[in-house]
Design a binder for these strands. Structure first.
Lengths: 228, 228
DNA sequence: GTAGGTTAAAAAATCGATTATCTTGTCTAA
DNA sequence: TTAGACAAGATAATCGATTTTTTAACCTAC
C-alpha cells in the first residue's frame, strides 16, 4: 500500500502507537470544532488532555500541520488555523471540481461490489439518522458514505485531496448545532445519489452532487457567519 | 498567513529549527532521487547524515509522511514510497486537470505585477539554462517558474495540491540524467507560456500547458522504465 | 507618555537514555 | 524437512530532563 492517507489506514485500536492514536483523536477534535479557530495550542495541556507524552504528541502535531489541520510557526508552536469566508469559498469550489470529477470516474469504473458497498453505506447512514444518533457516529457514517461514493474513481491522489477538503469543509459545517430542516433535504440527496450511481447516470449524478455541495456550503456559510 | 504550505514558507536559513531544516533538506533529497524508492530509512544513519538529533529528525519524517513523500508504518519506521507506472499516470493526469484549471484562473486574475514576476522567473530560468547550470539551482528556478505561472489562480488549496503533485512527479522525472533534446523543447514552451499568459489567451495557454505536461510525462515515463 | 532595553518566567525545541516492538537466526518436535 | 517456539540483537517509540527561544513585565531615559 503505497500511498496510504496520513491517517492510520487500519483503524488504530488500543494497539497502535501513541503518536498515531493521538493523531486520530486530535484530527477528530479539530474537525469537530472542539478547538476554537485561531487558538494557540498549549502543548502541556494537550499532554494531559490526551494522556500522552511529549514526543508522540509533537509528532502528531507535526503530521497535522503538514496535513493542514494545524499551522506551525517556527519556534512558536502550533495553532488552530483561522476560519475565513474566502477560504470556505475556496474549499467549496474545490470540492465541486474534485468530487464532481471523482464521481464521474467512479460511475464509469465502479463494479458491482461498489454498488453493494454504496447501498450498504447509504443504509447505515439512514439507520443512524432514524436512531436520531446525530453525533460522532453519524459523522463517521456520513464521511464513509461520501468516501464510498467516489472510491473507485481510480486516482489515489484525487481521493487523498478530497479527503483533505472534507476535513477542512467540516471545520465550517460543524461549527454550530444541527439544522434538521436542511439536514433532511441533504439526507434525501444521499439516496438519490445512490440511485443515479446505480443507473450509471454520470451527468445527472454530477449535477446532483454539485447541488449537494452547494447546499452544504450554504449550511456551512450560515454557521460561519453566525459564529463570528 | 493561514494556510502556509507544509514547507517553511520563508526559506529557513541557518536560523530555523533543526526540524524545519532537516525537513527541507530531506524533501529536496527525496524529490531529487537521492534515496531509492521502496528503501527503508535507517533513522540512525539519517541522524548522522543530516547532523541532527532524533527528535527533530522524527518530527521531520512525520511531516514528510503526512505530505506523501514518505510512508509510515506503525512500529516499523519510515520508507521511501515505491514508484509505479499507475501512480505516475495518476499524478500526470491530476497535474493536467489541476494545473490547467489553475492556469486559466491565473490568466483571468493575474495583474501587471504578476506579468512582471512571470517575465522575471522565465528569464532567470533561461539564464540558468545558458549557464549550463542544470543542477539543483536549475531545478529550483524551474519549480519557481511553474509556481509563479499559476500563483494568482485565487485558490490556496489548488496551489497546495499542485505543489504536492509537482514533488511527486519530480520523483519520476528526476530518476535519470538530463535529456538535452527534449529539454530544449520544454524550455521553449516555458517562454511560449509566458507569451500566451501576457496575451491573456487562456484557451491556447491551457492547450500548451497540457502539451507541456504531456511531454514531461513522456520524459518521466521513459526514465521510470529505464530505471526499473 | 513612550520607545528602547533588561530580565524573569513560560513555552518550544532538542537531547540522552529507557522501554517496547520487531527481526533474525537457531533450535526443537512432528 | 519444515512449521513453530524461542532468544538475542536491532530498531522504533517513548520518556524525563535540558537547552534555547519567546513572551511579558518592568524599568529607564528621553
Amino acid at each position: 500500500m503505497n500511498n496510504s492517507l496520513p491517517t492510520s489506514a487500519k483503524p488504530v485500536g488500543p494497539a497502535g502507537t501513541a503518536s498515531s492514536r493521538v493523531f486520530d483523536h486530535l484530527r477528530k477534535d479539530l474537525v469537530g470544532g472542539r478547538f476554537v479557530a485561531g487558538e494557540k495550542l498549549a502543548i502541556n495541556a494537550l499532554k494531559d488532555r490526551y494522556q500522552v507524552g511529549l514526543s508522540p504528541l509533537r509528532e502528531a502535531l507535526n503530521k497535522l500541520a503538514a496535513y493542514g489541520l494545524l499551522v506551525q510557526e517556527n519556534q512558536r508552536g502550533f495553532r488552530v488555523p483561522k476560519l475565513s469566508r474566502d477560504e470556505l469559498d475556496d474549499i467549496a469550489q474545490m470540492r465541486l471540481e474534485m468530487e464532481g470529477m471523482a464521481l464521474e470516474r467512479a460511475i464509469a469504473n465502479g463494479d458491482s461490489l461498489w454498488e453493494a458497498d454504496l447501498l450498504a453505506a447509504a443504509h447505515r447512514l439512514k439507520r443512524a439518522d432514524i436512531t436520531l444518533d446525530k453525533g460522532e457516529e453519524w459523522e463517521h457514517l456520513h464521511t464513509q458514505f461520501h468516501r464510498t461514493l467516489v472510491a473507485p474513481c481510480g486516482s489515489v491522489w484525487l481521493l487523498r485531496f478530497i479527503e483533505q477538503l472534507h476535513d477542512q469543509f467540516d471545520r465550517y459545517r460543524r461549527l454550530g448545532p444541527k439544522m434538521p430542516t436542511i439536514r433532511q433535504e441533504l439526507d434525501e440527496q444521499h439516496h438519490q445519489l445512490v440511485e443515479l450511481a446505480l443507473q450509471r447516470d454520470a451527468k445527472t449524478a454530477r449535477e446532483l452532487m454539485d447541488d449537494h455541495i452547494h447546499k452544504s456550503y450554504e449550511v456551512a456559510l450560515k454557521r460561519y457567519q453566525e459564529h463570528v
